[in-house]
Design a protein around this nucleic acid. Sequence first.
DNA 1: GATGAATGAGTGTTCATTCAT
DNA 2: CATGAATGAACACTCATTCAT
Lengths: 191, 191, 191, 191
Amino acid sequence: MRVKDEEKQQALFEATIKLVNEIGFVSSSVAKIAKEANVSPATLYIYHENKVDLLVNTYLQIKKSLSLAILEDFAPEVGVKKGLKLVWRNMFQYISKHNDYFQFTEQFSNCPYASLINKEEVDSYFLPVLILIEKGIKDKIIKDIDFDMIICFLVAPVLHLANPKICCNFVVNEESINIGFELAWDAISCN
Amino acid sequence: MRVKDEEKQQALFEATIKLVNEIGFVSSSVAKIAKEANVSPATLYIYHENKVDLLVNTYLQIKKSLSLAILEDFAPEVGVKKGLKLVWRNMFQYISKHNDYFQFTEQFSNCPYASLINKEEVDSYFLPVLILIEKGIKDKIIKDIDFDMIICFLVAPVLHLANPKICCNFVVNEESINIGFELAWDAISCN
Amino acid sequence: MRVKDEEKQQALFEATIKLVNEIGFVSSSVAKIAKEANVSPATLYIYHENKVDLLVNTYLQIKKSLSLAILEDFAPEVGVKKGLKLVWRNMFQYISKHNDYFQFTEQFSNCPYASLINKEEVDSYFLPVLILIEKGIKDKIIKDIDFDMIICFLVAPVLHLANPKICCNFVVNEESINIGFELAWDAISCN
Amino acid sequence: MRVKDEEKQQALFEATIKLVNEIGFVSSSVAKIAKEANVSPATLYIYHENKVDLLVNTYLQIKKSLSLAILEDFAPEVGVKKGLKLVWRNMFQYISKHNDYFQFTEQFSNCPYASLINKEEVDSYFLPVLILIEKGIKDKIIKDIDFDMIICFLVAPVLHLANPKICCNFVVNEESINIGFELAWDAISCN
DNA sequence: GATGAATGAGTGTTCATTCAT
DNA sequence: CATGAATGAACACTCATTCAT
């Protein structure tokens, strides 16, 4: 993989996301993606080993940018609840702004290529949040239960609400974001 | 004249679910599905108009059977919390038992074919639960907020926890089911 | 071939002609023809050995009916010119009335199945006309040249003019039929 | 980057003509044509949008080459009869030489794809001949009747006589060509 | 580095025909 | 006699990938 033209690289990512969202994995052929990116199919293979590699790399790049967005202005010092609330709001805002990225990852997460992802590495992007939760548990602010369970009530509702395919009526605004967080907080916090 | 063979129909459904789970939508060709079902590719087209029709019908059948399982022993008279708890437990048990069905629907829900589903019809399968929640709101047992939000905290965590691709460590047992429900209940109930 | 229901037989012929004209040989499958004739594909095979047999039989039936139409009111006694003129007019009238039959035979004559036809048998349907022409040659009313050449100037123009695919503007009426015959007669007669 | 191979293009045309003549439109599959042309089926689609496009383009190329052959040495100055006689002879010679091309167009003209051809454009190839005929009519050398009728007696007999499927006994030589033309001329000329 | 041509293997689908009733 | 179910083979076409330039 000889990297040269950053623009082509980016055009390929965007073409991939756009096409997969519009016509799905099944119909998104290399030829179509290359055309959408104004690039020859052969060129695509300079930047990615093969088709699966392209998809995986696209996924990883999105996850990376998501983690950056989520941790924007994040400061553990403000306390557990305030910290998590910021993360919660950042997630909603990122997803609202980049709904196409989000749709892509949702599709990708549920397809067999997902198993090619190094989950631990992706998780590490979000480490500061995990540390804050652990602190919350230790300080008896958050219920002392299985970690997956906590994450579940913090993440799953966001993905559910923000997914227009599932919640087509849900409106994302400051108020609904706050209400949502209060429910999540009621679920995981000690009383 | 021969008569349509119910066994073939069923074999097709099972082959579809198995293959889609194992190799994904992209690689699940009609030829492979037919072979897995011990049926000629041409025969598949007697039972389904085309490949998409096969996938959609498979999805609908699963959703139907899920709704039946969820509502087993359901009796609104037992009260809001107990009623919802039963539903919650039924969901976990169904998903544990039929993890392959569940995986299929998760993939399907996030692929473009999902838009071909009449969502209202599918929702209607679960109507009794919706009515119980509405009663809970009216009786001030459940928070008076957007309906989607309530559903979200009741459904999304189940799908999240039960999905081995996401929560590979989570163990489904009587205790973890109960804990999960208590969190969900804390989220949606009036204190 | 066990013949029983004359109606089904006829329905099959008409369905074949209609479909071949509308969508061509290539797309006219046995299944479609059977459906058009309100008959099961399997039933078709009671009346015809296979698909080619169906097409050939359809062609032969049309040729037979054409020969009957052409020879209607034919009487060699009226003389060579009057006799041929009647035949000429009968041809135009038959083709105008049964343009779908005609289109079918034109397509069929130019496809490889045509070689399966016993040309001599078909020609024999039109024997009286051939005899009249021979008489015309003997009586020095018609030019004494190759027989094929005579037939050619009597038949080819009709097929050409009556074919809406070639002569889309040509109008078939009493006057144009007469003019056409005069040209043909000028061509073949001893001035 | 490789460059489009003119040889492949030509091989495809010839394979198409050969196969369609030998086994007909119905049996001439893309796979067979590609094999005959020593080319991958996929390659065929680089040169032609689809199968119909291949057939249409083949037809058009033949018509173009026919028009060039017909107008070879054509000079309106030699007069109407001599001019048309040259065209008549050129047609016979071209058809004799390229009987396979001719057979293909005969089949094509009578199949439903024919409607995809821009007839006016094809006609324009032969414009000089049409102009000569018009001059003949104006000069009262040719009968003043419907144009289609004139064309019919000039063209249909050639196609008829030259078609070995119809006139299997007819021998094309200088004498028979002349005799044929005299008949045609007797038909259309003002005696 | 970048490309369009080229391809064998595969796609979803339909085919002519036969089978079991 | 009549049928719809059933099928292996074939269909037109597209695929991910490589090649020659």
